[in-house]
Design a protein around this nucleic acid. Structure first.
Length: 152
DNA sequence: GCCAACGTTGGC
DNA sequence: GCCAACGTTGGC
């Protein structure tokens, strides 16, 4: 059982959108390192910390669960989609996504500033400079601490 | 809106 | 395979 951190710009897709829809297919990841995680390592039952980026304040706002492991991203094959990739095909899908289920929105969001200030959360990838990866593994001890910090 | 830090592309 | 040019991410 692993924990992940997924980044999303709330203007594009927020935790509130996920709460409304209950489940969603996490499409549009177009980075190979993140793709590899989605295709090979994100497993059913894993937890996903939902992170809002490019907003004020950026931070962790909720929790989701993986209910379906990596499947090809159909948006890569759709010429009308913003996520269309001419190099992707049915035989060689190139890009993958997973399906998430909404679990909760944290009573208290945890801002990036707070993450950086926390001794216990030291080493989290998201707090590191220049870290742009949109799918990141999270250590269990960090996840547990976050659950505590966000509970109230 | 700025821009530093990355990632990708493509000529050579 | 190198690397300059370009595009994107995301905090500030």
């Amino acid at each position: 059982m692993k924990t992940w951190l997924f980044k999303s710009e709330p203007d594009t897709y927020s935790i509130d959108d996920l709460q409304k829809e209950k489940t969603c297919f996490w499409e549009g990841v177009r980075n190979y390192q993140a793709r590899n995680f989605l295709r090979d390592e994100v497993k059913k039952g894993d937890f996903v910390l939902f992170y809002h980026s490019n907003c004020k304040p950026p931070g962790i706002v909720g929790l989701a669960e993986v209910i379906k492991e990596g499947t090809p991203d159909p948006f890569a094959l759709d010429p009308k989609s913003d996520y269309f990739d001419p190099k992707a095909s049915e035989e060689n899908p190139r890009w993958y996504g997973v399906t998430l289920k909404f679990l909760k929105k944290y009573p208290k969001a945890l801002s990036l500033e707070e993450i950086k200030a926390s001794k216990e959360l030291e080493g989290m990838l998201v707090a590191q400079k220049g870290q742009r990866l949109s799918i990141q593994p999270v250590e269990t001890k960090h996840y547990k601490r976050i659950e505590t910090l966000c509970a109230v």
